[in-house]
Design a binder for these strands. Structure first.
Lengths: 199, 199
DNA sequence: ATTATAGTTGACTGATCGGTCAAGTCAATA
DNA sequence: TATTGACTTGACCGATCAGTCAACTATAAT
């Protein structure tokens, strides 16, 4: 045919579509193959297992989200706290667009998977922890920069960054459960005002 | 044998144990029956479907959590904000005990299920939304009481209660993903200091 | 032209999925 | 004692699960 890596990419895209909109356990390899227009034999030529596919999908998903959200929000041109506000705004717009397309609030792809597999798939659990740690570092660095410039006083940047990340995930979960993007619109902006102080 | 309703209760307990520790999709009816010491035919004598079992399990789980956490924390003897602090403390101790028993941080049973099924099981999704609404009302009433007594000024009690609930769920998710109760210990107390103001 | 390699195909495996069913046990009622 | 109805049992259903495999095609290097 034309392209050798096209099949692999189609499988990754299909897995992303289906697993994000449903769940890891609900979406079978056969469904991923059907949606990708690929036979099951080809699937196992490119990926040794469903688990390995999901790991590859997560890495690609992280890069995409980093480009679409992280790299657009955490820029030096903005004051530190404004970066957090832009991040929440971009995340809201992302969910809004998905909701218009699919009719569902899908929430955070990493939070979804973390909730599902953390207790019984150590490999995927650890990969998701890595991904969360990268987002955590983005936020923590921003808070430390604000700390240094005197914008904040004596906050625990590490704990506050974790708290903001947790709040983000919680808001996404509530919006997903209510299938309502207004939840994000109303609650998420408060993320940047969360503070955890030393002692 | 001895007790007619014992079987039904054993099935409910088994489902609670297994689904809470894993997930809805991962735990099959056969596994629930094995763990309950019951044959599959008996299962379908008491429950018409796996979905109906989960609905019954959720109702029982809610009542249990309300007794163990809600009724112990939201009491008139405590000042409003102290109730929230007691709630977070009791939730932490609950997770700590489960972690010692199972070796895993299991998070919030309702959040876990909500994340898994909200996009593809409307019945369970709606039941979970009801349960969240009850917890939301508990928190909102507490905040309004604090508002009336002048402890707080001009906060949006409804939105703040939702934000606290979201934060609670997010903290539980992060602790589950890191399999570390210290996350709860460090982050959850900040729940009661979250504020969303009008306008 | 021959060979090696990458990718494709569809049939196949054993296990498990949620759910069904007829036959049976048992205690209470009539 | 006969009958009823709640409960139990184990075999069974078609569908689907993740994963395998030998045969096949197409491309590229020798």
């Amino acid at each position: 045919m034309e392209n050798t890596c096209d099949t692999r990419q189609r499988i990754l895209d299909s897995a992303r579509d289906l697993i994000y909109a449903n769940s890891y356990a609900e979406v079978g390899v056969a469904a991923i193959c059907d949606h990708a227009g690929v036979k099951k034999g080809s699937f196992y030529h490119f990926f040794p297992s469903k688990q390995e596919l999901v790991l590859a999908m997560l890495d690609a998903f992280y890069l995409d989200m980093k480009e679409r959200l992280g790299d657009k929000a955490f820029i030096d041109e903005l004051p530190p706290l404004a970066r957090l506000e832009r991040f929440t705004q971009l995340a809201y717009e992302f969910q809004l667009q998905l909701h218009q397309t699919t009719g569902m609030v899908l929430g955070c792809p990493f939070g979804n998977l973390a909730n599902e597999v953390s207790t019984h798939d150590e490999v995927i659990r650890a990969r998701l922890e890595q991904i969360f740690k990268k987002f955590h570092t983005l936020i923590r660095n921003t808070l430390e920069e604000a700390n240094d410039s005197g914008t904040l006083n004596h906050i625990n940047a590490d704990a506050t960054a974790q708290a903001m990340l947790a709040y983000f995930e919680g808001v996404m979960l509530m919006a997903k459960n209510q299938n309502n993007t207004d939840v994000i619109k109303q609650l998420l902006p408060a993320m940047s005002s969360i503070r955890i102080h030393n002692n």
